[in-house]
Design a protein around this nucleic acid. Structure first.
Lengths: 336, 336
DNA sequence: TTGAAAGCGCTACCAA
DNA sequence: TTGGTAGCGCTTTCAA
């Protein structure tokens, strides 16, 4: 391995001078610089960024910790992060920890001395599980708010999104809206359910919500559909807590002869690419996930430049409604 | 920042002993170890892995360099990689380089001293653009074969996949199969086209292929459809070089009144999630992309353990055919 | 079993 | 403008 010493020796200068020349500092004679650069290329010298980080106490790397790497949600977040960090010349150190709080803490520890800052999405949005470990290092929380009122965060307003879609269904004439819940330990799912319940209470007299269990997986959508079909429950609309379940539920109801968009209105949450391609198109809540990543990265960059962010710099991204055929809204075709 | 010196001082031992105790070496007295561990927890000591990497000449990190982070393809690869590296306790350093060969080389250089090995997917599968830079470090190529006959690689057999699907269309009775090409500078696209041409030459007498330009984007699918509809070209099947174009083409042809699966057979390549959800389902070529990532990671791990892999350890993943309604195969519904 | 000290490859300070 | 050198935080000989 060729080090800066080799280059210095070959060029007949000291390591100090070599370092200065290689880093483009102006206080080096053109002639000296040339010699050094020639030696560097001749030896095919590549600086050892690990060593450099140690002396400079700066790694130009941002640690990203996500609970899982599965699905579009996470890849969009990473893409958003990369979008802004790449421009700033930072690398990304990925530390995925597959859900458990302990593994998360472990992953964060392992990043010590290898990153300048941390972007972490705590498992189940439980920020408290990571706070103890991130105290020493600039951190932005993804999709979760800290309990300390000081760590900046970026998240999606699940509650507002659920309100949006529930209101929409009522506007379209629905009176008996079923909600298919997500996993009980998932904060996002709970927020969506809360939005649904609140709107129901506000707008319909009785306000008795009807909630079926679910777990965000497609099977749950099919199961819910079968349950609805066989139970004799009265319903004219279904709001599933995510698109995956909504899509499967829709196709199951259709097979049973129900006309989606007129007999029954259906809506989901997430706006996965599939949502616009099923027939009829699925009405759903759209969040700019990429923006969650890019905004978090921007906050991080500012922190790394020494700015002290307050909690009020945090961003709760407001979702929008994507109205399609499944709620009787669009043309009922696959295209929006 | 609390270092190992602080811990040593607090415990009343030397840094050497502290290091040994903290790393679980057996040659430390139980009593000494206890003192040290107590001090470490009291001070909330977290080892600086950057410094550790420098002395041990080992980072426990694998560099991953992809041309882009967009879409399912890349996220599946990363997921595959993570699947095996996570088990081995390695982190992933992401260096995306957005396409250009120079940026790629730059990204690889920047990883020097920060990773133990490199998983790189060269832009446009041009392995030669990265070979000069990766010589000093264990490397596995993704979706590209090196020119040096020595760097291991993992890729998908685009040629075989294209043969599979073309044969299938002919088996289903197609006689005039149009191919919609991908970007000219994309090796995958060229391989797919080559497979199509070869099968045509082998099985149909005339063997005159009919190829329309494309670029993998949805617009190209629609344009090709319009061209076909207005030009008066005789055709009874279309093989698009990716699903995106196939899906759009299909919906455009359907609007024009053609019956997909009977009047016209359509097939794509990639098996994106959408493929099984459109109506009719899209017949396409399925590759286990996650496996590309996981296999590459496994090869890397073996190299890192000192094994010298030969080129014949490389893997070309054989794709399979997913037959659905668009080629007259399935029930013509959205479900497979 | 423990400690002193020499690095890992680099940067940055202080003198010259 | 250049060179010598002291670290960055850690591991690992080599002696004690």
């Amino acid at each position: 391995m060729v080090t800066i010493r080799d280059v210095a020796k070959a060029a007949g200068v000291s390591v100090a001078t070599a370092s200065r020349a290689l880093n483009g500092m102006s206080i080096v004679t053109a002639k000296t610089r040339e010699k050094i650069e020639a030696a560097a290329t001749a030896l095919d010298y590549v600086p050892h960024s690990g060593a450099r980080s140690l002396t400079k106490r700066k790694t130009d790397t941002i640690g990203v910790i996500l609970p899982d790497l599965f699905g579009e949600f996470f890849s969009e977040i990473i893409r958003g992060i990369d979008l802004v960090t790449h421009r700033a010349g930072k690398s990304l150190l990925l530390g995925n920890m597959h859900g458990s709080a302990e593994e998360t803490a472990q992953a964060i520890r392992a990043m010590r001395g290898r990153v300048d800052g941390l972007l972490v999405m705590p498992p189940n949005s439980r920020a408290d599980t990571v706070e103890a470990v991130t105290r020493d290092i600039p951190t932005v929380l993804l999709n979760a708010q800290g309990t300390d009122d000081v760590t900046p965060f970026v998240s999606v307003d699940n509650y507002a999104g659920a309100r949006l879609v529930t209101n929409h269904l009522i506007d379209r004439g629905a009176r008996n809206i079923i909600h298919i819940a997500g996993p009980a330990n998932n904060r996002d799912a709970r927020e969506r359910q809360r939005g649904y319940c609140d709107v129901l209470a506000e707008r319909t007299g009785n306000g008795s919500p009807l909630i079926l269990p679910g777990d965000f997986r497609d099977d749950a959508g099919r199961e819910a559909a079968r349950l609805l079909l066989t139970s004799g429950i009265t319903f004219d609309a279904v709001f599933a807590s995510n698109d995956m379940m909504a899509v499967e539920l829709m196709s199951e109801l259709r097979v049973a002869g129900l006309q989606i968009g007129s007999d029954i209105l259906v809506a989901g949450f997430d706006d996965i690419p599939l949502a616009r391609h099923v027939t009829p198109g699925l009405t759903t809540v759209h969040s700019d996930i990429t923006r969650v990543g890019s905004t978090a990265a921007e906050l991080m960059l500012r922190m790394m430049e020494g700015e002290t962010l307050e909690r009020d710099q945090s961003l709760i991204i407001a979702p929008t409604l994507a109205i399609r055929g499944s709620s009787g809204g669009g043309a009922g075709t696959a295209r929006t």
